[in-house]
Amino acid sequence: MIGFILRRLLQAVLVMLTISFASFVIQGKLGDPVTQMVGQNVTLAERAQLTESLGLNDPLLQQYARYLSDALSGDLGVSYYHKQATLAVIGDRLPATLELSFCALLIVLLTATPLGVFAAIRPRHILSRLIVIVSTLGLSVPIFVVAMFLVYFFAVEWQWLPSFGRGETHLLFGFWSSGLVTKDGLQHLLLPSVSLAFVLAPIFVRLIRAQMLEELDSDYVRYAWSKGIPAHRVYFVHALKNTMLPVITVGGIQVGTLIAYTILTETIFQWPGMGLLFMEAVSRVDAPLISAYLIVVGLIFVLINTLVDLIYLWVNPRVRIPGYGQ
């Protein structure tokens, strides 16, 4: 058990090293950093001096080692545009993105699970057919179309909800600016998180339905029926737990997709989060910010996947083989 966790953590470290190398290469090679910093009107000699003092003439691996040790001490460089430490810039925007992703994920879980389970338990019900059709459609509609429709109706036509920005936020614990605690913030959160959920929910509905159908057809479910236990126990105690095992795994991977989609969602709704920051950084070729974003997102991704594996270990007794990993 402990061996499994240690090994999993080691893997996480390896993945982070790979990500850091990729983002290091991006930072150093995306355009000429010296030109980015000083512009055109500087003599060649001064340029050469700056290049030398920045350490850009050192061997690549040496530069990488320096980058890595800086990164470990929390220094991922300074943004060209914001003239601030990149981590601080990202840290300012992080709460917005995390709150958006969290709400979207919550909506996905609360809608996809009951819909998928219902479609599996009553496969011939008219609603189940509808669920399958709509989720297939949902899979194929891109998020900006969904978002535009939502904005058009809810913000423009009926004017029920705001269409952009985060609204009023409150500073929690001295560093976390939260939109979850004000009514205005929640109203602003609704459209972006719903449209983000719209992209992910169909995948989960279909996954849960397919998996549940398979479990309902299994020997142990038939055996559970033969024990004469109530139907809800067969569905929700016996079948659902086994259904959720692969859903947890896929869910962990989809969280990555979720973060990727926040880039689009945040751009559409002008949501001041990391995704929007990243889009701005790309258009300004703000290389340190881009690479810092990669590292932070990579770290979130790795953390979530490690967490998912640990949850899996906890839920699925078959992984907990005694003696394994010792």
């Binding site: 299994s218 020997d219 142990y220 038939r222 055996y223 559970a224 029926w225 033969s226 024990k227 004469g228 236990i229 126990r233 016996h238 737990k241 086994n242 839920v315 699925n316 007794p317 078959r318």
Partner: peptide, 30 residues
């Protein structure tokens, strides 16, 4: 009646018990 007055044993014992629950849980459930 099923499970109490009429009970059944199936062919494949390895797949007929729910892999996610302990032996005790599954007996006590019945």
């Amino acid at each position: 009646i099923t499970g109490s007055d009429i009970a059944m044993i199936f062919q494949d014992p390895m797949t007929s018990l729910n892999p996610c629950y302990t032996v005790g849980y599954q007996i006590i459930e019945a």
